[in-house]
């Protein structure tokens, strides 16, 4: 049987009721979601009605200013991204090579680097750049290195890091490829809150700003880990290295240092 009544008409009680009901539900939900709930939230600190509506709609709010505790020592102010320190050209590498002549006293190329200094050849540019910036700013302090870094300009640091990144990686001081990687290097110690060295320092992944460790001197690696653990070195951004070093045992530090030094 076909009725003559039109479906989409206000005279159709089914239509007007369902549409009216839905519209009413929408209005109720809007009032609840945008007005009632924002004010009902504890500590919401809302001002006007418009603020409540924007807040509920997901418009980012400015952080309420609170008193902050300033650092008592200099922390790293380097903005670290995987694109750091930006594209380089051959002129930058050339300038870096000239500048690097003053570094060669300690960071000599080849196998003549001193045991208490890092090998810089083939290091990611971001790693060298970040440390130079930190030395210059005083976030990292070394009696020998600081006076050199203080005189460097921003361009000097970009050029130096470009030069060292351009050089091929040098073989280690005491290559012995036969040593198996210790657990701390390849797996870390998850039960003691320690990620593997290789998850940031190459082998597994390279984190922006992390130096390549293979072929570094064991004395240098050990000294840095101990400095991080003992809060003598604090230029790692937001304690990312101190958090790890302070959890490592003396044996793990020795193993990691010996392993990396033995890598070709």
């Amino acid at each position: 049987m076909k009725t003559e009544e039109r479906l989409f008409s206000w005279r159709n009680s089914w239509f007007s009721l369902s549409l009216g009901g839905t519209a009413g539900l929408v209005v109720l939900s809007l009032i609840a979601g945008f007005l009632v709930l924002p004010y009902a939230t504890p500590n919401s600190k809302l001002g006007s009605l418009w603020d409540a509506i924007c807040s509920a709609a997901g418009v980012p709010r400015a952080t309420a200013p609170s008193e902050q505790v300033a650092p008592t020592f200099k922390t790293s102010a380097v903005v670290m991204t995987s694109q750091m320190p930006g594209p380089t050209d051959t002129r930058s590498v050339g300038r870096g090579a000239t500048l690097a002549m003053q570094c060669a006293i300690c960071h000599a190329s080849g196998r003549h680097s001193q045991p208490d200094t890092p090998n810089l050849e083939g290091q990611p540019a971001a790693a060298v750049y970040k440390q130079l910036r930190d030395f210059k700013a005083g976030a990292r302090v070394n009696a020998v290195m600081t006076p050199f870094a203080i005189n460097l300009t921003e361009q000097d640091m970009i050029d130096l890091s470009a030069y060292y990144a351009y050089l091929p990686r040098q073989p280690g001081l005491h290559p012995d490829a036969g040593v198996p990687a210790p657990a701390i290097v390849i797996r870390g110690a998850a039960m003691r809150n320690i990620p593997a060295c290789s998850s940031c320092h190459g082998g597994g992944e390279v984190k922006a700003g992390a130096p390549w460790l293979e072929g570094q001197s064991a004395i240098y690696i050990k000294a840095q880990l101990q400095a991080f653990a003992g809060e003598h070195r604090r230029n790692d951004i937001s304690e990312q290295m101190r958090n790890i070093a302070r959890r490592m045992t003396a044996q793990e530090i020795d193993e990691a240092a010996a392993y990396y030094a033995s890598r070709p």
Binding site: P60, P71, S238
Partner: peptide
């Protein structure tokens, strides 16, 4: 209940997450 933002690249330099 609401959204606040922080720049991940500079949280260690300024703001409440230093």
């Amino acid at each position: 209940a609401w959204i606040e933002t922080a720049n991940p690249r500079t949280v260690h330099i300024a703001g409440e997450f230093i």
